[in-house]
Structures are given as C-alpha cells and as structure tokens.
C-alpha cells in the first residue's frame, strides 16, 4: 500500500527554507523551558503531521509508534529519578517529585515535537530535492551532494545483497551460537561482506563520476532547478502564526500547575 496519497503544498516548499525553519524551531524549543508553550506547539505540529503531509493516516500512526515509546522512556527516566523538592511518592530508589514529574513531561513533549518535525520533513522532501537545493541555495560542493544521492541509490542493491547473503548462509547450513556470541557472529557474517562489497562498488562509481566531471564546482548547470515560490511565503506565515498563537495560548490558558521546569 502506498505511503503517499497526494502531494501537498508542503512538498513544494523549498527544502532549504524548510530545513532553516526546523533548525530555528529546534533551537527555539531547546531554549524555551515554558511547558505550556511546548504543549500547545506540539498540538500544532500534530495537526501539520496528520493533515498536511498527504500520507495515509494508518501509515502516519504506524510511523509515530516509536515516538510514543520514546515519550515514555524519556518521561519515565526523568520522572522517577530526577531531582526535586516536593515529594509525591518514594519507594526504594524511585523518588517522584513534582518538579521531576513535570520536567519529565516537558522532556517527553519536546522529544515528540522534534521527532514529528523530523518526520514531517522526511515525508515531504525527497533526497533529490534536498541535495539539489543544497547545491543551489547553500552552495554545497557538488561532489558531496552527488555522493549522497549516489549512496542513497546504492541502498536497494545492498538490501538485495543482504537477502542473498542470508540465503547463502542458510543453504550452507550455518548455525549461530546462542546469546551474545551469536549476535556478534551474525554481525560479523553480514557486516564484513556487505561493507567490503559497498566499498568496491563506491570506488568503481567514484571513478565513473570523476570521468563525468561530477567533482566540478558549483558553477555547473543543474537538471532540476529549485528556486523559491509562493509556497515558501505561505510556509513562513504558517509557522510564524502557529508560534505566536502558542505563545498567546500558553499565557492565557495554562494546562499544568507548573510554568517553568527549570
């Protein structure tokens, strides 16, 4: 079943503009310790994730499943073992305080926000768009950008090799040891041939690319021209409005009894 149903306006936003805003929001969220703001902003990110990426909801929920585990793990480790004054519950090494509980909640919300923002970017940007745009807007050297694109193209071949390796080991009747030794045996049997073969292939491709002048400078011509459009302005507006509305909502409609977690 296809992941993507339709292209949305987010697909047409310049990848570098998207990346710039993600980095900006990342730094912003990292420096703001106001838990209500984080909460409201997360709601907006969830809206973007669910309704504006143009993917099937079933897939979206499946993709966000690891994030829920991540939420609980980052929340629990801080809530159970964090420092704080107002004790709620204490048993042996576990010591839950009001401060640590909300700090944990804050951490969980923030981790999920970053994760969802990353997923939004990944779902609405193709590698080709990203690297062409980074060459044209960021002046990344073509030899880096094309190396990235070539490497991503190599991945399916590597997957095929892994499948062949698995079958070959099975045919030869290889039996792994039990426990951790078995795990390292398995790592060894797969990683050495896969890496060796990848290096050989990369070497051959690099020579071919060198002959075709892929190591030239940025003054080359590009097959895809990626510029700015009205979608970029719209994206900027949406993010700014969401940001400001979150700030306002956080101040007039608090959800938790604590404002700052630090």
């Amino acid at each position: 079943m296809d992941l993507q149903i339709k292209m949305t306006w987010l697909h047409h936003v310049n990848p570098m503009v998207k990346l710039f805003f993600l980095v900006f929001l990342f730094i912003g969220l990292l420096l703001i310790h106001h838990i209500h703001f984080q909460f409201y902003f997360l709601l907006f990110i969830i809206c973007i994730y669910l309704f504006m990426t143009g993917c099937r909801t079933k897939w979206l929920l499946l993709l966000s499943l690891p994030l829920s585990i991540l939420f609980f793990s980052s929340f629990l480790s801080m809530a159970l073992f964090g420092m704080g004054e107002t004790t709620w519950w204490k048993l042996g090494i576990v010591h839950i305080t009001e401060e640590s509980f909300f700090r944990g909640l804050h951490l969980g919300i923030r981790t999920v926000s970053f994760g969802l923002l990353g997923l939004v970017f990944a779902l609405t940007t193709t590698p080709v768009q990203l690297f062409y745009s980074s060459m044209q807007q960021l002046r990344l050297k073509p030899k880096f950008a094309y190396s990235f694109m070539a490497s991503i193209r190599i991945l399916p071949i590597i997957v095929e090799e892994i499948i062949i390796l698995k079958k070959a080991l099975k045919v030869r009747g290889y039996v792994y040891s039990k426990g951790l030794t078995g795990f390292f045996e398995r790592m060894n049997h797969y990683s050495v041939p896969i890496l060796a073969q990848s290096i050989r292939r990369a070497h051959r491709i690099a020579i071919a690319m060198q002959i075709k002048q892929f190591n030239g400078d940025t003054r080359r011509t590009y097959y895809y021209k990626i510029g700015y459009s009205r979608h970029d302005i719209f994206f900027t507006l949406v993010v700014t409005v969401f940001f400001l509305v979150s700030v306002v909502l956080a101040n007039i409609l608090p959800v938790f009894p604590v404002d700052y977690v630090r």
């Binding site: 030899k143 990235f148 490497s151 990369a202 070497h203 491709i205």
Partner: peptide, 13 residues
C-alpha cells in the same frame, strides 16, 4: 571524490 563517495556510502549504510 573517491574518498568522499566511499565515506558517504559507509555512512549511509
């Protein structure tokens, strides 16, 4: 270019 491509292929793996 060879160094970079090999590095990035390893990294992507």
């Amino acid at each position: 270019l060879t160094d970079i491509l090999v590095t990035i292929v390893i990294a992507i793996v």
